[in-house]
Write a protein that binds this DNA or RNA. Sequence first.
RNA 1: GGUCCCUUCGUCUAUCGGUUAGGACGAGAGAUUUUCAUUCUCUAAAGAGGAGUUCGACUCUCCUAGGGACUACCA
Length: 504
Amino acid sequence: MTDRKVRVRFAPSPTGPLHIGGVRTALYNYLFARQHGGDMIFRIEDTDSARFVPGAEEYIIESFKWLGIHFDEGVGFGGQHGPYRQSERRDIYRRYVQQLLDEGKAYYAFDTPEELNAKREEIKNFQYDATTRSMMRNQLTLGLEEAQRLIARGEQYVVRFKVEPGEEVHVADLIRGDVRIMSDILDDKVLYKSADDLPTYHLANIVDDHLMEVSHVIRGEEWLPSAPLHVLLYRAFGWADTMPAFAHLPLLLKPDGKGKLSKRDGDRLGFPVFPLEWHDPKSGEVSSGYRESGYLPEAVINFLALLGWNPGTDQEILSMDDLISQFDLTKCSKSGAKFDYVKGQWFNREYIIHTDNARLAPTFRAILQEQGIDAPAERVEAVVGMMKMKKINFIKELWPLCDFFFIAPTYDLDDKFTRKNWKDGAAADMKALRHLLAGLDDFSIAGQKAAIDAWAAETGVKPWNAWRVCLVGTGKGPDMYELAAFLGKEETLRRMDAALQALA
RNA sequence: GGUCCCUUCGUCUAUCGGUUAGGACGAGAGAUUUUCAUUCUCUAAAGAGGAGUUCGACUCUCCUAGGGACUACCA
């Protein structure tokens, strides 16, 4: 088992958009697989026909594509272990359910949901197990023949796993160590329901992981309580020796308050909990996504990777390749992590600063277009380059800081910055500077700098702030030489004239 | 209620018996600056509580408290 090829899977249920916690689980699986040269499988667990949501599967695939998490096989990716959609594997499950039935490790049960509910109300802490199954309507109390007669008659039934009490079950967890639990507290879980001819998660999961030769099951902590059941199932099938290793990841918790992170928290606090924007087909409700909110996928990956794991060094900015080489499943933390979305925004800022302007520019260009400004790509790129180190976490925050690049300012003496920097001598200084610039042939940054620095040194005038008033209209913007070079000589002089006229 | 998991600054975390308990986000202060920023420096900020084990415990054990998950013919 130790020298088996690493094969992991991410197996969502297509019941809606992919939750950010699920993204992290998938990421950890991906990092682990890549690090060990293994395979990553994409399986769809749609054994609950009632909860199927159209579009969810496509949404999930597109999310991972955006995030840069690649699958080696599975739904939409091909592979030798298909089909990878559980609803298409009915024959397989039926066969294995029958095996358990034949071996007396599972049994038919006919209790209706109403009967079950009645029992749950009648007996506190009712659990369908060794102590109670003798008072229920099942194969054990009815006899096999009667059970088969009922089935032949068309009565609906389920197949339950017969858990033998009195045994201590061990789950070897890569993160938590040896987790022990008494089999007595496990109930006779439903493995298969005749109503839709589909297994439940537990059965399908074990059968598929076995058949797909999954070596490591890396999943959320919410599965830990049922892990002992899974161990028992592997054993019942005789697959104990190839049982995958388990690792249960801590949960993502609410940023404030208590409990696990939910969609509501995102709405309430203003951050996305889904990778992509999601349009609910039933309610028509739209949920925001990281992509549409202006996050770079690398930032999301980096942020998520560090929620529950860290390389043990002070390095926090890690690329996917860094993560793949440094990730260590056994060093994942055991406790849940509150979702620190403010730090997530910081990661985005870091990635914006270190991302090529050419890649950033189209996003900003689209925002400019919304403002009715159609600027050439190179111009937009230049502006992004000058301004992205300002205090922004998202490209869209650039607009209010950058409008003057594209729109000539208006002048207002009530503006704090204008008032402070347009003193008595300002008009005269600007006239002189205008004269100097008008005669300047080389209007490049270097050309301006040489001329103006020399002039400033000679006259003792510090023209920059008043000049900024002319070109920007207030106290923001990049270095003045960069700005003037961007605007060009003609526009620079025009704005200076306008300022002189308005403020003189 | 039952079962299991967890517990270091406000938050994410480092420490794998011996440290001035480190880093980052966020917060505050200062310096630099051609505005806004950036950058730099600094400050405040933590071992849930109680018993053990040990020469020595944040680190190991137990108890308590708190938090979380699970407890479906959902995954």
